[in-house]
Simulated assay, not measured.
Amino acid sequence: MTRPRLAVVGNPENRRVTMFLDAAATRGLPTPRVLSWYEVITAGGARFGADEVVRLDSPGENAAVDALLRGPGAPTRIADGPRWYAALVGATATLRGGRLLTDPGELGVLFDKRLCHERLVNDGVPVPFSPTSGAGAPAPACWGDVRELARSSGLRRFFVKPAHGSSAAGVVAVETASGGRVQARSSVELAADGVHNSLRVRRVTGEAEVGALIDALAGECLHIEAWLPKPTAGGRAADLRVVVVAGRATHAVLRTSTHPMTNLHLGGSRGDLAAAMAAFDSGGFGWERALSVAERAAAAFPRTLCVGVDLLPAADWRGAAVGEVNAFGDLLPGLTGLPGRADGLNTYEAQLSALDEWTDSAAA
């Protein structure tokens, strides 16, 4: 095994970076060179040696970096997503040299839900239907637009998401019924100084209230997609985060929740993965086939070493679709790999283990 010269662009104090450094130490690799996003952005770029292998990590959870990308304001605010997106994509374009483990062009697609959805559809990956998929799709500018797009598409239950958001920030799960009744669930909070993301998912009822929520988010380039029924595990809604490394699913977490967003930081919890595997198998779809759906989604981004795929099992476990593909979806502390795929390795160790073969194939 060769000993690559590793570098990482991230927020040095963040556990994503420190866990990657720990993984390198565990595998006996030299300590990676760390460049902060703050340094890269303020310096107008960074240069790497031809022999450096460069990991790009999340710019999140750092107020100074967020202010550079999004502009000043409270870290909890949901605002200026298009500015954040353009600044992040622009920053990755200033990186020179080295072999990047996340392709900047693919990063731009991964952080635009409309483009990501379109790419998955074009590659034959099953996804929830969306009337806003693709760069040329209609961009709803208000609740009235959202309501009409959903109605004309036959959607009575749907998600409204900021196109450039992550971690369910700004996501609204909407349900409509006969007679014009509308309700929604979201962690979004409206305040005098704007729209904020909280850690508590609340129910909002009534056309006026839901409309006000959507209108407040309308500047974020909204994406609409069907809300697919989820199976239950222990009486809770369930889906999976599957980490795919070098084209192979290596880690999986069953996420369960009492509300539509299963993100662990919003009160979701890790469920019984073995039970989910058995449910796929007993339903006839098969666990390995479910993993292959996640791998097909990752294959749409062949120049990116690792992605986290949100896999949506059918309500009867007899199928699976892909909700989202996450560029920085590998933060799963305490989780070791799937048997026969990444035995005993955490997500960072699995990536380092796959590095030699992947960099050779990527260079071919």
Rank of each mutant, 00 (worst) to 15 (best):
W143V: 03
R270G: 11
A363V: 10
R16T: 08
V201F: 01
P339G: 06
G319A: 11
N122E: 15
D22N: 13
A184M: 03
A216T: 07
A135G: 00
V89A: 13
G340N: 02
E189I: 10
R296A: 15
C116I: 01
R185W: 02
A208R: 15
N11H: 12
A299W: 03
P4Y: 10
T2L: 08
S58H: 03
K161T: 00
V172Q: 00
R289T: 11
A93W: 08
M261D: 00
G170A: 02
T176D: 11
A46P: 10
V322R: 06
L56N: 06
G340I: 09
L101N: 02
A163C: 04
D281R: 09
T250N: 05
T347D: 08
P32S: 10
A139L: 11
A91Y: 12
V172K: 00
V182R: 10
T250Y: 13
G81D: 02
G71E: 14
T359R: 12
A64Y: 07
C221V: 14
G286P: 07
V65W: 03
D123V: 05
D51N: 07
M19D: 15
F301E: 08
T92Y: 04
V9K: 04
N326T: 04
A25S: 15
L311D: 07
P30Y: 03
E106Q: 14
A139N: 08
H223D: 02
G165C: 00
S133Q: 02
A246V: 05
R202W: 00
